[in-house]
Design a protein around this nucleic acid. Structure first.
Length: 466
RNA sequence: UCCCCUGUAGCUCAGCUGGUAGAGCAAGCGGCUGUUAACCGCUGGGUCGUAGGUUCGAAUCCUACCGGGGGAGCCA
């Protein structure tokens, strides 16, 4: 018979009769003049607390136990017993309670009652101690594990692409500069900066995407994926954008766009399925307290059980034009789909994930493969209700001459991409890939409204306190 | 970056067309109870985001700045 060491285990009926050694944080304490106290203890191993019965016979009952306040850290030794009360199967009859650190109720910010998420963002160092943020941390972990499991089980190689990059031409948005030069001095001198004197001998930045480097490895090893931090210096202030976020980018040699779309669909379904299976308690919590319509779990299960809609950009434009909806932005072939258009398709028209593909060439990046019509490229976006674009990907242009032509058309200098073009010069292959924003995936499965609440320490314009 | 809303007690908010700040919860103390968003009573707690301005008088009106939220753009 082993000692129970987690709240999760102590809550199980199977543990009744066993010794327990639990360490965690007090959520609340209720005293009974009948001569004992109830302590709700949480240790992060599950959403729920375990109820600890602290009898008056404990030698520190009057001095310590009766003053335990929310946030205090304790070690409890006792026995798991069947609960006499309603609301829980088990409870722990304490034989000793040791206080590690108290939390002055006058100054401890977290109270028993619910706080707004906006207020909790100001206490990013304490919010993991709340139900919601504990659940988010566990689900986020589950999603990450599921991502690795999916790729590892399907023969993908995990490759690490650089975080600092010297190519300022990845084409995915504004970049943060990385420098060791003395900025104050440079400003004082008011001279043109000589970047050859900087650390890398050239301008360098934080990566906005590992795609181009992932292509290098895909064009040697077949199927690879990256999973790392990504940085965008855009001044974006929305519930769906972060300046620092985590991105997953698979890249596959010999995959065309259809293979790519199938992979994206299988991938998302796998994540949703794992989360429902491995985090049932947390997901039930989100379904009840976060999702206003209480349909989160049904929605995810529905997605797992059905097929994503696939429609070409041209078909999407026709659907939007025939929809009878009045949009703020007019719908016309050649314009990028606006948020309102994407929402109509995925939330109103189909009510499930929609993959739009074959976008006009002029609104997409240079590396996407040109179709024979010369007007569209083999791009795809996966749109889901509420969060919008969750995945963006494409089949890559593998033909050297076409790629060079596209770059020139878009005003890029092919010489800057000499190594990227070498992949087409030597043993080129058709290949495809996509990018999934981790936080958007977590946002989608948890139902959380703001992306700043699904990453432990959100970086947004003007905000890096923690 | 643009548009709209917002900032009052530890938290969530009320405070009308300007007259000098209030509730619930939390906290402290007391009571009661195998309790579980516990309950009942009492008590303490605020230069009303900041800086100017209008006025006899500003939480209230005006301006600027700062913070927060929603929408848009950029995207993942």
């Amino acid at each position: 018979m082993s000692t129970i060491r987690t709240v999760a285990a102590a809550r199980s009926k199977d543990s009744i009769g066993q010794q327990a050694l639990l360490q965690g944080w007090v959520r609340t304490r209720r005293d009974s003049k009948g001569g004992f106290s109830f302590i709700e203890l949480n240790d992060g191993t599950c959403l729920a607390n375990v109820q600890v019965i602290a009898p008056a016979e404990l030698e520190n009952y009057e001095t310590v136990v009766k003053h335990l306040s929310p946030g205090s850290s304790i070690t409890v030794r006792g026995t798991v017993v069947a609960s006499q009360g309603k609301g829980q199967d088990t409870e722990v009859q304490a034989q000793s309670i040791e206080l590690h650190g108290g939390a002055d109720p006058e100054t401890y910010p977290l109270q028993k009652k619910r706080h707004t998420f906006e207020k909790l963002r100001e206490w990013a160092h304490l919010r993991p101690r709340t139900n919601t943020f504990g659940a988010i941390a566990r689900v986020r972990n589950c999603v990450c594990r599921s991502i690795h499991d999916f790729f590892q089980e399907n023969g993908f190689l995990y490759v690490h692409t650089p975080i600092i990059t010297a190519s300022d031409c990845e084409g995915a948005g504004a970049m943060f500069r990385v420098t060791t030069l003395d900025v104050d001095q440079l400003v004082a001198q008011r001279e043109k900066v000589d970047w050859s004197r900087d650390f890398f001998g050239r301008p360098s930045f934080l990566t906005v995407s590992g795609q181009l480097e992932a292509e290098i490895f895909a064009c040697a090893l077949g199927k690879v994926y990256t999973f790392g931090p990504t940085f965008r210096a855009e001044n974006s202030n929305t519930p769906r954008h972060l300046a620092e976020f985590w991105m997953i980018e698979p890249e596959m040699a010999f995959y065309d766009l259809n293979d790519n779309m199938t992979l994206a669909e299988d991938f998302l379904k796998r994540i949703f399925r794992d989360v429902l299976e491995r985090c049932p308690e947390d997901m039930a919590f989100f379904n009840q307290f976060i999702d206003e319509s209480h349909t989160l779990i049904d929605t995810l299960q529905g997605i797992i059980d059905s097929e994503f809609v696939r429609l070409s950009y041209t078909e999407a434009i026709e659907l939007l034009q025939q929809s009878g909806e009045t949009f703020e932005f007019p719908v016309q072939w050649g314009c990028d789909l606006q948020t309102e258009h994407e929402r109509y398709l995925t939330e109103k028209k189909f009510r499930r994930p929609v993959i739009v593909y074959d976008y006009p060439a002029q609104i997409k990046a240079f590396y996407m493969r040109l179709n024979d019509d010369e007007k569209t490229v083999r791009a795809m976006d996966v749109l889901v209700p509420r969060v919008g674009e969750i995945i963006g990907g494409s089949q890559r242009e593998e033909r050297l001459d076409v790629l060079e032509r596209r770059m020139t058309q878009l005003g890029l200098n092919p010489e800057d991409y000499w190594w990227y073009l070498d992949l087409r010069r030597f043993g080129t292959v058709p290949h495809s890939g996509f990018g999934l924003g981790l936080e958007r995936a977590v946002q989608f499965v948890t139902g959380m409204a703001n992306i700043r609440d699904v990453i432990p320490f959100p970086r947004t314009p003007g905000n890096a306190e923690f």
